[in-house]
Amino acid sequence: MDGRAWRRFRKNKGALWGGMLVLSVTLVAALGPLLAPHDPDQQHRETLLSGDGSPVAPWSVPGHPLGADSLGRDELSRLLHGGAVSMQVAFFATALAVLLGVVVGALSGYFLGAFDFLSMRLVDVLLSTPFLLIAIAIQRVWDDPALWTLFVLLGLLSWTTLARVTRAKTMQVRALDYIQAARALGAGRMRILLRHVLPNVLGPVIVLGTTLVAQMIIVESAMSFLGLGVQPPQASWGSMLREGQELMDDAPRLMLFPAAFIVMTVFGFNLLGEGLRDAFDPKD
């Protein structure tokens, strides 16, 4: 980000709010497991479930400020651990998607030819498949889905837009005079790609990557909500939302807590992404 972009970004109130939201949610996710007062998977059936089996309310039992979930597990600890899981999946999936998208896009845009043709057709195919359906199907047939299969899967399915944008930008930069000059000076292809092309695609990639985190949070939570993402007993915001919905009438908080975190995170990343877009590419 150059100086002007940074100044535009700082002036953008929405972006700053988004950045703060993102920062605090990320902190919660990163430090959450350390701050969590209890084991998120341990069931305290005697102390945290009342006589009729319903979970205790917030503040009613000392040491459990947010009460318990339907199985008598400490709600606060589950929210903190769940956040770590959701953010981990979203970040790693995004990182994989960015890596794939930039590499494929830059190679396509720089070398063109058969590789470009094939990779862009692959992008077309991926972009026009029912994404969620395929992700769920793959996750279901996997025998023992671990966390890493989830983010590898999400990453592999969502690098497409990044590849398209990187490719377009690479083709644009490639035709500029100073690339010709660098080539005339004897710079190799790798050097040109890394030193001259890559810095130019960085802006759009950061913007897209930021909004992609929001999308990955949405997809991960959706899959966990449908019971085909993060597997129980492990908590994620999506699976907590699903479990909370079952007790919706008696204890709506079990649904509303994770829902609030999901919305806050997605909202934050979207705001930040929007702000970065305006900073990098001012239209007005």
Binding site: L241, M255, N270, L271
Partner: peptide, 22 residues
């Protein structure tokens, strides 16, 4: 509208159910 693009269906759906139906 900006809030709208950040609200997943699995958040709004259950909340609508809770408030408007239950």
């Amino acid at each position: 509208a900006f809030l709208g693009i950040s609200l997943p269906t699995y958040v709004t759906g259950p909340i609508f159910l809770l408030v408007l139906a239950f």
